[in-house]
Write a protein that binds this DNA or RNA. Structure first.
Length: 465
RNA sequence: GGCGCCAUAGCCAAGUGGCUAAGGCAGGGGCCUGCAAAGCCCUGAUCCCCGGUUCGAAUCCGGGUGGCGCCUCCA
């Protein structure tokens, strides 16, 4: 497997720290609001990475955190009058629902920052002992970036010109220094007891501490294999994570750093501060989760994806074709996946998750499958292999695993269904009587209801348009 | 200002030194069909511009132009 490593800024061969096993950490959401499409994309691309590694035979341990203590959450607590726990529990549940709708496999480990305070204390303590962290008069504890020789080796973005943009803070020794612990601001602040007095952790420390606690190998130059997250986290978040672990544990956090591109709207990054966020829950009202997943998956993970409905529809049509093929082989039991298909898809994904190449192989399989079935519709061996191919694909990409008939009838209620089927029956009768005028009128009527029908040797089937 | 990324057909998008530049959507033509739909076949590219390196460049180098990101919370 080849991956683009952000730290080295080039493509590298992936070699796991322990043979046959891969440990991955991905930065999860701060749970103060619903997930938007950017969160969805990040989750989906790293889910693809996980599935690919699993398909290659690795035992994967996948971890994703919930940041459940943070300025924005506290702000929400104050505004809403609800408790911190109420809010974070709510948004964690919402996140998990969204992820499930998008076919994202549940991580093996899902720690929360507030449940990892012991590990956080421990790491801060170490940094204080080593003289790398310092306290300020306000009760905050900062990380002294000048004490870490390798600081900036990940993001390569800490030249003076850049750092001069950071708002100066007289309490900090260096501009890039960041808070490990924020002392309690008094009345109204949400604070935890700690060996350093009441307060709460800084944003970056939780990841380093939780990785060490839950996921890290105990020995070796690196703690875990892969650390992933959105490209906006590279600096300062990941740089700081790396610095903390390096300084507290005397080794590197991850041997590979991966970053996904943004979801943009009209070419601009989707973000809550820009107010152009598109929430997953809202998208799911209009588009099926699987279609959304397929769309977000179909652009290479490092490139930006400019969200628009036209491309999403094109993506849906591409997925439709897979499901139509699946209809044609309905009910047959799968034999074994075509080895060439398997190799080609996996070798594409092994090339830094080249999804475009993988999907081109998939399209080719669909086309050739249809062609073979056109020529010989009864060929059982072909059908069984196609069934196996589709099963393989659906495992790997997380799309195409559904019942093909229900896929085309998503969102149609029982009442409409009965009406549609009655109309189709009426039309079939008309057709038998060669009353094509009536038959065509019924087709039109169905079309107006948003239903397309198609006559097949097995009878008339319908799809929601 | 610093550090980066990107620019391939109407749209999305692979390809990063060498046969006719993948694939999908849309469009056009055909086969099939009572008519359709679906499916299949055929059909589309001065690879942003200008220089350079090379026998040969979308692909490498230099310079432009345009777009975007990080440096502040961010997936």
């Amino acid at each position: 497997m080849r991956l683009f490593d952000s730290s080295k800024r080039r493509m590298v061969d992936f070699v796991p720290l322990k043979e046959g096993e891969v440990r991955i950490y991905v930065c999860g959401p701060t749970v103060y609001d619903d997930a938007h499409l950017g969160h969805a994309r990040s989750a989906i691309v790293f889910d693809l990475l996980r599935r690919t590694l699993e398909a290659l035979g690795y035992r994967v341990i996948f971890m994703k955190n919930f940041t459940d203590i943070d300025d924005k959450i506290i702000k929400k607590v104050k505004e809403s009058g609800r408790s911190l726990e109420e809010i974070t529990t709510h948004y964690i549940r919402r996140y998990l629902e969204d992820m499930e709708a998008l076919g994202v496999l549940r991580p093996h480990i899902e720690p929360k920052a507030t449940e990892s305070l012991d590990a956080i204390f421990h790491m801060i303590q170490r940094l204080l002992e080593e003289g790398i962290a310092y306290r300020t008069e306000k009760g905050d504890i900062y990380f002294d970036t000048s004490k870490d020789r390798a600081y900036c080796s990940l993001s390569h973005r800490c030249d003076e010109e850049s750092l001069s943009r950071i708002e100066p803070d007289p309490l900090k020794r260096n501009p890039a220094d960041f808070a490990l612990w924020k002392g309690c601001k008094g009345e109204g602040d949400i604070c935890f007891d700690s060996p350093f007095g009441p307060g709460r952790p800084g944003w970056h420390i939780e990841c380093s501490a939780m990785i060490q606690k839950y996921l890290a190998y105990k020995e070796g130059p690196y703690q875990i294999d892969i650390h992933g997250g959105g490209a906006d986290l590279l600096f300062p978040h990941h740089e700081n994570e790396a610095a903390q672990t390096r300084s507290a544990c005397s080794r590197e956090l991850a041997s590979y750093w991966l970053h996904n591109g943004f979801v943009t709207i009209s070419g601009e990054k989707m973000s809550k501060s820009l107010g152009n966020s598109f929430f997953v829950k809202d998208a799911l009202k209009v588009y099926d989760g699987e279609v959304l997943r397929f769309y977000l998956l179909s652009t290479h993970y490092r490139a930006d994806l400019n969200f628009n409905e036209e491309d999403l529809v094109a993506s849906k049509k591409r997925l439709d074709k897979l499901y139509r093929l699946k209809k044609r082989i309905y009910g047959v039991s799968p034999s074994s996946v075509n080895p060439t298909l398997r190799d080609e898809v996996l070798s594409a994904l092994q090339d830094d998750l080249n999804i475009s190449r993988a999907l081109a192989v998939l399209d080719e399989m669909v086309k050739r499958g249809n062609e073979m079935l056109d020529r010989n519709p009864k060929e059982r061996g072909v059908k069984r292999e196609l069934a196996a191919n589709i099963e393989f694909i659906s495992q790997l990409l997380g799309v195409g695993g559904r019942d093909p008939y229900s896929y085309f009838q998503i969102g149609v209620d029982e009442e409409s269904r009965a009406r549609i089927e009655a109309l189709i029956e009426e039309r079939s009768r008309a057709k038998r009587e060669r009353n094509f005028e009536v038959a065509d009128r019924i087709r039109e009527e169905l079309k107006e209801m948003g239903i397309a029908i198609m006559d097949t040797p097995q009878g008339t089937v319908w799809e929601k348009i």
